[in-house]
Structures are given as structure tokens and as C-alpha cells.
Design a protein around this nucleic acid. Structure first.
Lengths: 247, 247
DNA sequence: CGCCAGGTTGATTTCGCTCAAGCAATGTGG
DNA sequence: CCACATTGCTTGAGCGAAATCAACCTGGCG
């Protein structure tokens, strides 16, 4: 939680290091100033709910620091993580742009700081700057691409393959590299959730983890993971198995 | 193929029965006339490729009749069907709006007739009528929703459950109801493709089909399916299994 | 201290993938 | 018109992977 409180929230959007990587990059100075005046900085602790499925969409969120998990659930208690949002990511635009109720829940998995932008402000900016609409369109198209990639991988990869992919992707956001070339990170999700992301049970994941350790590819201890040979893991998923040889 | 040739392609967009259900519904008469003048009607036989992954996106397609399968493939020969497009559906907008190369392939699975609309025309219409952009945005968001639903079902449903869902959804587009309340249709895809849509092998699907017949829920013969008790099938997926009781 | 959530481990069974054979419908060339 | 190949689908046997059920461990917490 120190990370979130570390940076003061009183800074301006104009100087925000996040801006040039976000959808706001297309705004000019006047528009950015408007955004800055009307935004509301909010802080969340790990476990806090940002919004829940079924709520009306009142605005969108721009991540300044931390990690937020976006999850989808059906009516009978099944929940799957859809994606994680990090610094610079904007989320909540789907419901807002469609003027629909939230179909996902968003929960801070670390202490996080983000700016809330009300729908009225987004509407003004969209009217003034058509490029912003195109930005959001591209984000949604990117989300769609990700979802289809997941579908394809679910259909073709082994559980181990899926998990390694997931680990490598998480490492790219959460990881640090040590002096000896190994990489390490703190897992942002529980094993149970990691298991549902690859479509298996927690017990199965536990055994997969055991096998990865046997093979000397990674070391797990609580929430921390270390890739002892990062290149070997990357090679394992870049040289993928033809069709369904689910071995 | 008679279905496709049955309706003359010389009709105007203004009188097209498809229009009021499609994204074009927001166009006024002048805009519709422009669309009509610049569209190019094209005919495809079953098996014909409309576009392939990797091609540049030169425009979009509006289905007048028939069925088109949109598929995604990775680099090593794995292919999964993403969705089927029917009369009134528009496809190819993703690549066009993002000005990107095709990421999917589109193949006519029945003889089909569709109108091709060049990117220049789409650009003009988007500039003139902002509501059209919103229409496409909603379509993409809908596609995203579908993809996430698939992910959730893949993670939670049994193979049988997934197949029944797929059947019911296909029936809603391809099916007819008989005098005795039973429903029937001709399957638009091969068993192999149906199998990949639910993430299994064709042999497994064959056994699932056998079990459905044993249970007296459906009858299969070649490409035709009959739901003897449609309500029982719907009940099977509406009263879904809690969590992963993959029985 | 006992309780609980999160995680691991083990024993058992079910499921689905693989390999292989067979079969019906369709096509092809002699 | 017949031998033959091809394609789409079904069926069977064997086996490996993963789900299930259950016990157990660990650390955190009232």
C-alpha cells in the first residue's frame, strides 16, 4: 500500500507521467486542463471494490498506480479474471460508451490510486476531439483481440503451456530482473484465481507448479515466483505445439 | 446456392429488408442512397474465401443472404471458428476501423450474397453521421461480450453443456419448428469444426452426440439435427452446473 | 489456543485424447 | 458400370491427464 501513497495525488494531468502512454495522449493542452480540473483522484486498498457488475456506468477510471483486476461472473457464482489494469491503463470505458450497466467487477488487488472521470466530462471531450473516440475504439478492439487469443490458446495449449504463458505475461508487468539474470515477482492473484484463468482446478495448478520446480525452470514460495531460466520459459511457449498434442 | 441467387442483387439499399436491423439503420435517405450507389454486390459459393488473414482491409461486407464463418488461426495451423455471420450482419469492420490487416479469415459456408462497401465510402459516411461510428462501436463491444462469454463457458461448462449451448444458438439462426413442436436444422459446420468450437476432438463430439441421442433429446442424421424436446435442452443450459462439476 | 483461509499432497475415478479400424457417401478414372 | 480413392463420421481399446474427494499443512488472527 505504500506504493499508492508514495506519489502525491495532487499532481496535474499535464505533468502526469502516465498521459503520453494512455488514451489521453491525443488531447491538446486545453482539453487536458479540462480533464485535470474535473477528474477526481481516488485511493483504494487491496481488496477494495471499484465497481460491481450490475451498477450503472457513471464514468471511467485512469490508473495512476497499483493493480486492478477486472472479473466477469455468470449467474451461479462462477468468476473468471478477464484482465489486470496497471499504471496508465484506462478501464470502465465499455459500459460508459455503451451507456450500459457494468458487466464486470473491478477490484483493487493492490493498494491503488486512480482518477475517476465522470461521464459528462468524457462526453465533452469526445465531442471536442474525435481522435479520443478512435482511441477508445482501438482499446476495445485490442481487448477483443486479447479475448480471442485466450480462446485460441484454451483450445490448443496444454495446461502447463497456458500457465507458463500467463506467468510470462504477468512477469512483464510485475517482474524485476536480478543481478544474475533471473526474474522475480509477487503474484497479484491467488492460486485459485490463477487456476481459473487457465481453466483448471487449484489442485491441478499446484501439481503443474511442482513440475515446473522439478524441471528447474522456476521457484515458488508463497506469493513470490522466481524464473531461474527466463529464456527457457519463453522458448517453451514460442515453440508451440502443433494442434492438440496436449502433452 | 439457390437461396443466394433467389433474390436479385439489383435491389436498392433503400428497399433492402436487411437495413432496419443493421448498423445502417441510422443513415438518412441521402446517406443510404450514397451507400447504394457505391456498394458492390458479390456472390460466393459454399467454400469460397471472402478474405484471408494477413490481407489489407479494403472495406466491409454486409450480408444479404447466406452464412459466412469468421475464423482465427495461430501460426502453427490451429484454427478456431469465432462466429458466423448471417443476413443483416456486417463484418470486416474491425480491420477497417483500425486500418489494420485482416486478423481473421472469412469463408462462405453456404452460397452467399453480400455487398462490399469500400473504405472510402465508409469514411465519408462516418464523417457525415457520427451515429454510425457509435453503431460500429456497439458491434465491437457486442463481439467482445460474446468472446468473454465463451471464455467463461469454456472455464465452467462440461463439453456436453458447451455443445448443447452451441446447438441451441445455431438453432436460433438456422432452425425451423415442426408441427409437433420439435425443431430441426441443417448444421452449417462440419463435426470437426463444431468440435473445435467447444474445444474437443471430433471423436469426443461424436460420443457426446451419441449420448444426446441415447437421452432422447435430439436426433442426428448427417447434417440435419432434430430437437425432439427443445425445452429439455434449453433447461439443461439454463439450470447450469455450479462451478466445475464437469460431469 | 482453536479456528480459518489458502495451499499442498495423496488415492481414486472419470474423462477425453490418441491410435486404429470400419463404414457410408461421393467422386474418379478406366 | 465397376474398382478405387477420398472425405466425413462413428466406434473401440488403451492410456494419460485431470477432476474429485479427502487429509493435511501452514500462517494469520480473534
Amino acid at each position: 500500500m505504500e506504493t499508492a501513497r508514495g506519489t502525491p495525488s495532487g499532481v496535474s494531468c499535464l505533468t502526469c507521467p502516465v498521459r503520453q502512454h494512455s488514451a489521453w495522449q491525443v488531447l491538446n493542452e486545453a482539453e487536458t486542463r479540462l480533464l485535470d480540473q474535473r477528474r477526481k483522484a481516488r485511493e483504494y486498498l487491496a481488496g477494495d471494490l471499484v465497481f460491481a457488475a450490475g451498477e450503472p456506468s457513471t464514468g471511467l477510471y485512469c490508473m495512476a498506480a497499483g493493480t486492478v483486476a477486472i472479473r466477469k461472473s455468470d449467474g451461479v457464482g462462477n468468476v473468471i479474471p478477464i484482465r489486470l489494469a496497471y499504471q496508465g491503463d484506462i478501464f470502465g470505458y465499455r459500459g460508459l460508451l455503451l451507456d450500459a450497466r457494468r458487466r464486470y467487477s473491478a477490484e483493487a488487488v493492490r493498494a491503488s490510486r486512480m482518477c475517476f472521470v465522470d461521464r459528462s466530462v468524457v462526453g465533452i471531450l469526445l465531442d471536442r476531439n474525435p481522435a479520443l473516440g478512435r482511441q477508445f475504439l482501438q482499446r476495445i478492439a485490442g481487448d477483443l483481440e486479447d479475448a480471442h487469443d485466450s480462446l485460441l490458446r484454451h483450445a490448443t495449449l496444454s495446461n502447463r503451456g497456458k500457465f507458463v504463458r500467463l506467468l510470462v505475461s504477468l512477469m512483464s508487468h510485475h517482474g524485476s530482473t536480478a543481478h544474475d539474470g533471473s526474474q522475480y515477482m509477487a503474484l497479484p492473484l491467488s492460486r485459485r484465481e490463477l487456476a481459473t484463468m487457465i481453466g483448471t482446478r487449484q489442485e491441478t495448478l499446484s501439481r503443474i507448479i511442482g513440475r515446473l520446480e522439478e524441471d528447474g525452470l522456476a521457484r515458488f514460495s508463497g506469493r513470490t515466483v522466481q524464473f531461474t531460466r527466463p529464456d527457457a520459459l519463453v522458448r517453451e511457449i514460442q515453440h508451440p505445439s502443433q494442434a492438440n498434442s496436449l502433452s
